[in-house]
Amino acid sequence: MRLVRVGAGLPLLLLAVAGYFLFPEYLTLFTSLFILSVFALSYDLLQGHAGVVSLGHAVFFGTGAYTAAILARHGLEEPLLGLLAALLVSAALALVLTRIVVVGNDLTRLLVTLGVGFLVFEAANQARDLTGGADGLSDFTMGPVLGLFRFDFAGETAFFYSLAVLALVYFFLWRLAGSPFGLALRGIRENVRRMPAIGAPVRRHLATAYTISGGIAGLAGALLAQTSNFASLDMLGFERSAEVMMMATLGGTGSIPGVVLGATGLGYLKDALSAMSPKYWQLGIGIVLMLSVFVLRGGIAGAFTALLRRLRGRA
C-alpha cells in the first residue's frame, strides 16, 4: 500500500506530459480528465478518508464554476484570482452546510446531501439573472493566466493550467493524508465511536475535511468554467454528484492515485460512449457499476495492490 501511495504521483505526471506529446489533438479531452480528477480527489477526501458519503458534492463544483464565470463576467479576467475566489466561496458554503451534513448515519447523510443538491439546483435555476438559468453562462472572456499565457484554440494553455492545479491538489492531499489530521480522519472512518475516547474532536475534524473538500471541488468547477468558457446547471446536478461518487469508488476509495486513475478511466469511457449516444454511456456505466460491486471491491487501486502482493509472494 505504501509503495503505491508514494510512487504513483510522478509516473502519473510523466504520463500526462507524455500524453501532450503523443496525442496533441486530444488536449481538450485531457484537460477535462484532469478536472474530473481534481473533483474526484476532493470527493475522496470525504468518502475515502473520512468515510462520509454524499450524493450532492456537485453543489460545490457548480458553485465554483458559477463563481468563476460570474466574476469573469464582471471584469475579473485573471484566471488565478477566479480560482482563488471559487475556492473560498465553495469552502465557505461547505462550512455553512457542514453542520447539517455531519449529523446522522449514512442513510440520513445521503438524503440530506441529495436534498441540499436539489435545493441548490432549483435555486440556481430560479436565479436567472445571476446564473443564466437553463441557458447557462457563456458571455464572458478569460484573460491570460498570470497575464502571460492566453487560452489558445488548441487548448495548450488549458492543458498545462489544469495539469498544474491537479498536481498541486494531488500533492496537497497526499501530504494531508499522511498528516496527523489525515490519520485522524481515517480513524473516524474506521471507528467513529472510539475516536472521542482518544481525545479527537470528531465533529471539528469532519467540518474541516468537509470545508477543504468543498473548496477543492469548487476549484475543479472553476477550472471547467474557465477552460470551457461555459457554466451551466448540469455542473450542479445530481448526475454529476453520482458520477463523482462512481469515479472515486471505482478508482479505489482512499487511494489518491487510484482515484485519479478511476476519474480519468471513467471520464474517457464517458467521452467515447457518449460520442455514440448518451444512452450507451448510461447503459455502460450502469453495467460497470453493478459489476464493480462484485468483482472490483477495492477499486482499481485495490486490484493493483492485490496484484503487487501476489507478485511479491511469488518472488
Binding site: 468518502q47 458519503v53 450524493l55 449514512d106 442513510l107 445521503l110 453520482a242 461518487m245 462512481m246 469508488t249 476509495t253 444512452k279 450507451y280 448510461q282 447503459l283 456505466i285 450502469g286 453495467i287 460497470v288 457499476l289 453493478m290 464493480s292 460491486v293 471491491r297
Partner: peptide, 24 residues
C-alpha cells in the same frame, strides 16, 4: 450484506441501466 456505499453504487447502476434500456 454489503456496506451501504456498495448498495448505493449497485442500485444507482441498476437505475442508470434501466433508464438506458428504456431509452434504447
Amino acid at each position: 450484506p454489503m456496506p451501504e456505499l456498495q448498495q448505493v453504487l449497485f442500485s444507482i447502476g441498476l437505475a442508470f441501466a434501466a433508464g438506458a434500456v428504456a431509452n434504447i
